[in-house]
């Protein structure tokens, strides 16, 4: 009987420790498989931020958001990382940073094209900023 308890305890401890190690080493999650918390046009999310930054922060910050909009600008930095800005309201848009695996697909985007981008919303500076973005559908 004691042996059985000991065995059960050991299994539990091993399971617990392995789960801990798994969590500790869990790589950065990709949003490509995540269900979006919000799906909306790029213009709407920007105008919600412009109207009331605090309530928009509470609603969207850290959430997986899927936005549809027109590519206003696409630039590449010195390391070849892409920056895509979607049109929003007036001069404010949505600046998107893509996850490494999504760079190739993002590179096919053209200015003026409509696109659906999913990423994690982080708030607004001059533009609303989304990180870890993936291209959902580039309408081609």
């Amino acid at each position: 009987m004691k042996k059985k308890i000991f065995l059960a305890l050991s299994i539990m401890i091993i399971a617990g420790v392995s789960y801990g190690i798994y969590l500790f080493n869990k790589p950065h999650q990709s949003v490509s498989k995540a269900e979006p918390d919000f799906q909306l046009p790029s213009t709407s999310i920007v105008s919600e931020y412009e109207k009331d930054e605090n309530s928009a922060n509470q609603k969207f910050n850290g959430k997986v958001v899927e936005v549809t909009g027109i590519v206003a600008e696409k630039t590449k930095d010195e390391q070849g990382k892409l920056n895509v800005t979607l049109q929003g309201e007036d001069i404010a848009g949505i600046g998107c940073v893509f996850e490494p695996a999504a760079q190739l697909k993002a590179a096919t985007l053209a200015e003026g094209q409509e696109v659906k981008i999913k990423g994690i919303c982080t708030g607004i500076l001059m533009d609303v900023v989304m990180v870890d973005c993936v291209v959902v559908d580039n309408n081609q």
């Binding site: 869990k26 999650q29 607004i124 870890d132």
Partner: peptide, 16 residues
């Protein structure tokens, strides 16, 4: 300059 704290990206999600 200004930056958003949540726009910091880490290799490990738990660290983020």
């Amino acid at each position: 300059f200004a930056l958003l704290m949540k726009a910091f990206v880490f290799e490990k999600s738990l660290m983020q």
